[in-house]
């Protein structure tokens, strides 16, 4: 059915990079939330979210990105989202989140 969601976490210079693989929907979003929040709280560094292999996301997942961004800002850090596929980038533009996140 769903291809699910997998993560790869690595240190990159002074940041943490989290690569997402698969789909973020209502079924996998809680897993994403726990992962992002724990990275932000445990590292208190900039967070790079690599979406090269992220095939699907909906508003549940976007809401979690926003929640993680709020937490990151509490530590004076930022979230950088990289390698968005066109169909997903479109959702950031529709919702105005392309102006909220650093997207590369």
């Amino acid at each position: 059915m769903s291809e699910g969601l997998r993560f790869v976490e690595e240190k990159v210079d002074d940041s943490v990079k989290l690569s997402l693989f698969g789909e973020v929907d209502i079924y996998t979003s809680q897993e994403l939330k726990e992962k992002l929040y724990s990275i932000v709280d445990n590292n208190q560094t900039d967070l790079i979210i690599d979406c090269k292999e992220l095939n699907y996301i909906d508003s549940t997942g976007l809401g979690i990105f926003v929640g993680a961004l709020k937490k990151t800002k509490q530590y004076g850090k930022k979230i950088i989202i990289t390698s968005l596929k066109d169909n997903i980038k479109k959702l950031f533009i529709i919702t105005g989140l392309d102006k909220v996140f650093v997207i590369e």
Partner: peptide, 20 residues
């Protein structure tokens, strides 16, 4: 394909809300 992806997202949004 691009439009199919859009339609999938829209349908999924409604399903997620109903399920929640």
């Amino acid at each position: 394909i691009e439009t199919i992806e859009d339609i999938k997202v829209a349908i999924s949004e409604v399903c997620s809300k109903i399920v929640s």
